[in-house]
């Protein structure tokens, strides 16, 4: 991992990353229902930009992205343990989030709703970034490569 970032900053980055993603999703559905407003669209793109920036800072620059995508043969026993733990937590977190979303959607469903691409895309992003976010959140020291 190339850039050392303190645990507190990493945690802050993870929070900002997912909060900005939630804002993108919410604004997208507001725009979809209420119509196109310049302020909403600007806000949506600003939040999207923040998601990209925090993704680069927390996942790419620290090398965590590379770490969670490294072949298992190239990791030592502690790193394998760390990645397994992160996958275990990610699976649980994602399951809870999906259940909550399904519950909310079933309550809000009107029968003629179209899901749109943003929520599924965000969930795929979430599923793919959760393991490295869990490592960014829990590990005291991160280094790879």
């Amino acid at each position: 991992m190339r850039k050392k970032i303190s645990k507190t900053k990493r945690r802050l980055g993870v929070i900002v990353n997912y909060l900005s993603l939630i804002i993108v999703v919410i604004l997208f559905y507001i725009v979809k229902h209420e119509g196109w407003h310049n302020l909403m669209i600007t806000g949506m793109f600003a939040a999207l930009l923040l998601t990209v920036i925090t993704f680069i800072t927390v996942h790419l620059k620290t090398g965590l992205w590379k770490f969670v995508h490294t072949k298992i043969e190239q990791l030592d026993e502690r790193e394998i343990q760390v990645t397994h733990e992160s996958l275990r937590y990610s699976y649980s977190i994602l399951s809870v989030i999906l259940l909550v979303i399904i519950f909310i959607m079933s309550l809000a469903a009107t029968g003629n709703d179209v899901l749109g691409p943003v929520l599924p895309t965000s969930l795929i992003y979430l599923a793919h970034t959760l393991p490295s976010s869990v490592i960014a959140w829990t590990e005291n020291e991160i280094s790879h490569g």
């Binding site: 990791l75 030592d76 026993e77 502690r78 790193e79 005291n140 020291e141 991160i142 280094s143 790879h144």
Partner: peptide, 15 residues
């Protein structure tokens, strides 16, 4: 045969 960070974790008795 480990990552140098793992040596740190071993020395601090965190692993």
């Amino acid at each position: 045969g480990v990552n140098f960070q793992t040596v740190g974790y071993l020395e601090r008795e965190e692993y």
